[in-house]
Amino acid sequence: MKALVIDISKCNGCHNCQIACKDEHVGNDWTPYAKPQPIIGQFWNKVTDITRGTVPKVKVAYVHSICQHCDEAPCITACPQKAIYRRKDGIVIIDPEKCAGNRNCNDACPYEGVIYFNRDLNISQKCTFCAHLLDKGWKEPRCVDVCPTGALTFGDENDLGDLLSKAEPLLPESGTKPRVFYIGLPKRFIAGALYDPEKDECIQGAKVTVTDNETGEKRATLSDDFGDFWIDGLRVSTFSLRIEKEGRPAQEIQSVRTDRDVNLGDIELPRGP
């Protein structure tokens, strides 16, 4: 049974995976696996860039939308034509010859934007894990083959134990049992920079503790030689911060919401009297 692991911490955003999929499926007919994609508009493996933070505390994360080839795929049960089926290796295929364009699958799928509707051919289309190539002896789909950094790994789930243990599925609560797993999904960060306003110097070695007000969980870090602190991997929640440095009055910042990543900016930490 096949699985795909996407390690976002290794994704450089080159979009090779997105382009390779186009290269394979635009203008090429792989019936009975898949009919051609239209020239534009469909992205069976779609890369989206997310800009996190504000100047100068900014990072970019790249997330991938792709059919999850679920074990309990809602699209299979939703299809009135019974056009969607799951292979022995776990790959889910929409039979392009049986599909009548009902689009029940599009509605049933909880993963956004992975099933597309082709108006010209009147069929729904999505990723096939390049099953037509796998059946010819290829070891991995096009997107994995062209990834330069090893962010994408495809293979038998029994061989991927190590990676899978570090990965998480999307929407686990939906009960779909997807076969695509993610490492390094972006969470939230709280960042800032500490400085001495009198001397105009960065403050290194200040202890910054964030507390998740909802769970009580604490994380701490030390500011670096630029006075920067950057605590990542946080939930969407409300946090409070405590900043401590010997010889300076401690500072508290309350009610920091992490709906978006937070850059608290430059924070003065003056010396005590």
């Binding site: 994704c11 450089n12 100068p56 970019v60 790249y62 920067d228």
Partner: peptide
């Protein structure tokens, strides 16, 4: 600019 290298590799961006 936070160029594409800075976007994923930078420990610090000095604009």
């Amino acid at each position: 600019d936070l160029n594409y290298g800075a976007a994923v590799h930078a420990d610090k961006w000095i604009p």
